[in-house]
């Protein structure tokens, strides 16, 4: 796997149109038909609770499964002007949580300013931190303290509790750096009982298979990380890899695409479909456009609403929309479901 993004390689699957083409050519029953059979089509939205903002595609890692196709060579990042528009939208949206993601969101030069401004609005803030950014450069070493200062909920990816499996997905040396960063977070109180500082980990399979039972994996992770590294955390979220961008490229390259789609389709669960996160979330792209979720954002499927940019945000209008769905959505409805907060049932 190249250390360049698909975008930098000029790979055909860096284009959303090509990804959609690959997804739509599958012979499996369409996701909308499946929703219809469950009485869920069109997929309506619920009152907005979570404002998920992707502040840019720049990242210090090039993970093999990344649906954002993020990496050091990606220069698309949110400007302060768009952030100001987000702040105004957040204030009038009624959402109780702002979820910051990327890329590595901390690499956006306005990240700290943005967090401080969101903090003033009294919203719960989640930062999806890849861990290694904390030790990537001296200027990031104080991130644990900064997170603590703003009572940020830190959600970090750690696909496994050994280096071989973690590094195979996220890059050489990532596990060791992640452990170092987790210790730094623990040192300021993150993940410690009664500290009130939440450190959640995200597990996603390092390959073409679905995640197992969330509670069983959490038990295993807690035991191994405590025993082997004296590391503590709060919750483990299991997330299914969606066939989008680099994970889609991996599936195609390894001839696993058809069998993976079959697994997802066969595991379709109407209860999970009823609870998908796009129903109470709005996703904002680096350029301010609005999407139903981060995956739709990467597939450039904007919300089906006359309001499709954060600049003219209107909660009541947006709550009238139906979610744009496609074959990739099977990833969120398989088994116990999948969301940025783990399983949904």
């Amino acid at each position: 796997m190249s250390l360049k993004s698909l975008h930098a390689q000029n790979h055909s699957l860096s284009l959303s149109k090509e990804q959609l083409h690959v997804l739509e050519k599958t012979s499996y029953v369409s996701f909308s038909k499946k929703l219809n059979e469950s009485g869920l089509f069109p997929l309506t939205v619920k009152p907005l609770e979570i404002f998920q903002i992707n502040v840019g595609k720049m990242c210090n890692q090039v993970c093999k499964h990344c649906h954002v196709d993020a990496g050091p060579d990606r220069k698309e990042i949110m400007t302060r002007e768009i952030m100001l528009q987000c702040l105004s939208a957040i204030e009038k949206s009624g959402a109780h949580t702002v979820d910051l993601t990327g890329g590595a969101p901390e690499m956006n030069p306005d990240f700290r300013w943005f967090v401080e401004e969101i903090s003033k609005l009294g919203k719960k803030i989640i930062v999806r931190c890849n861990l290694t950014i904390i030790v990537a450069n001296k200027k990031y070493n104080d991130l644990p303290e900064f997170f603590k200062q703003h009572k940020i909920e830190v959600v970090s990816s750690l696909p496994y509790f050994t280096s071989a499996k973690t590094d195979s997905q996220r890059g050489e040396g990532v596990f060791e750096k992640s452990i170092q960063a987790l210790k730094m977070l623990n040192d300021v109180g993150y993940g410690k009982q009664d500290s009130g500082l939440i450190l959640d980990l995200v597990y996603n399979p390092a390959g073409a298979f679905l995640p197992g039972d969330q509670s069983g994996l959490e038990r295993e992770f807690k035991n191994k990380l405590k025993t082997n590294f004296d590391i503590e955390f709060n919750n483990l979220f299991t997330i299914t890899n969606l066939p989008v961008s680099r994970f889609l490229e991996y599936l195609e390259r390894s001839s696993n695409f058809e069998s993976y789609m079959e697994k997802l389709v066969n595991a379709f669960n109407p209860s999970a479909a009823a609870n998908v996160m796009c129903r109470n979330t709005i996703s904002v792209g680096w350029d301010g456009y609005l999407y139903d979720c981060d995956f739709n954002q990467m597939l450039e499927l904007k919300v089906a609403s006359p309001i499709n940019h954060v600049n003219n945000f209107d909660t009541s209008m947006l709550e009238k929309r139906a979610v744009i769905t496609g074959q990739h959505c099977y990833g969120c409805t398989a088994g116990s479901g999948s969301s940025c907060g783990g399983t949904v049932i």
Partner: peptide, 11 residues
């Protein structure tokens, strides 16, 4: 093989 992988076992 698949089930153990899904349950978080490594090689």
């Amino acid at each position: 093989t698949q089930d153990t992988m899904e349950k978080g076992c490594d090689e």
